[in-house]
């Protein structure tokens, strides 16, 4: 089981939105930039040699306020090359069933330690959101999985960076234990059935609409 912690640095993200004036960006930077420790959320992934299931990890906040976490289930079967995703976004629940199609990763000559594992660096590009993706994967966990919707490297991805640190997803806990069997079970799949291509279209359309309306598209979808 791996717990991933996701940090979103909004002051940095907003700084890149082209439709805001420099003054507004500076205001955000000045007000929040200094103390931007990143908006944190966690996901956890159970996996065995052939399968993995990632879900949002709900944790009671320190002051005891609970907000509902959206449905987010990412299931992959590496053996059968299949994936099933249950994603709540844009006011709807989608069920995405498709075959696995890994992005074109480029493997680079850098290594570093993440959660006690020596990882190698690989990069790719999100062609829909136009983001630079940097992944650190370890050959020590020979499963081609990773956080959120990323996978397809010769080992588990333990750290992932979007656009040089706008969002950083890091494995905060890596644990090996025997699965009882239920951990990899998906909940009832209720929602609009889509394929990968539909997903990309929905995201691309939302980003296009939002930019046209001078809104930040990433309030409603994951950055």
């Amino acid at each position: 089981m791996i717990v991933y912690e996701r940090q979103e640095f909004w002051s940095k993200i907003i700084g890149q939105l082209t439709y805001l004036s420099n003054e507004e960006k500076d205001r955000v930077k000045q007000t929040w930039g200094k103390n931007d420790e990143g908006w944190k959320s966690k996901t956890k992934m159970y996996f065995n040699a052939n399968e993995s299931l990632l879900t949002n990890l709900e944790e009671a906040s320190e002051y005891g306020w609970s907000s509902r976490t959206e449905d987010y289930y990412i299931y992959r079967n590496y053996e059968k090359e299949k994936k099933i995703e249950l994603i709540e976004m844009l006011g709807k629940t989608y069920v995405l069933e498709d075959s696995l199609r890994a992005p074109n990763w480029k493997v680079l000559n850098q290594i570093k330690d993440v959660a006690g594992y020596i990882c190698m660096k690989a990069v790719t590009e999100d062609t829909v959101k136009h983001q630079k993706i940097t992944a650190w994967f370890t050959g020590d966990i020979p499963v081609s999985g990773g956080p959120e919707r990323f996978y397809g490297l010769p080992g588990m991805i333990l750290e992932l960076e979007i656009n040089d640190g706008d969002v950083v997803i890091t494995a905060s806990k890596v644990e090996f234990k025997k699965l009882e069997g239920k951990e990899l079970a998906l909940p009832k799949l209720k929602g609009k059935k889509i394929k990968d291509a539909d997903y990309d279209t929905i995201i691309a359309k939302h980003i296009k609409d939002s930019i046209k309306s001078y809104r930040n598209p990433y309030w409603a979808i994951k950055y």
Binding site: N104, W105, K106, V107, L108, A122, P142, L153, P154, G155
Partner: peptide, 12 residues
């Protein structure tokens, strides 16, 4: 781990 990459841009 053994990887085969494209020499042009290190694509896996």
């Amino acid at each position: 781990t053994v990887m085969l990459l494209q020499p042009k841009d290190s694509t896996l």
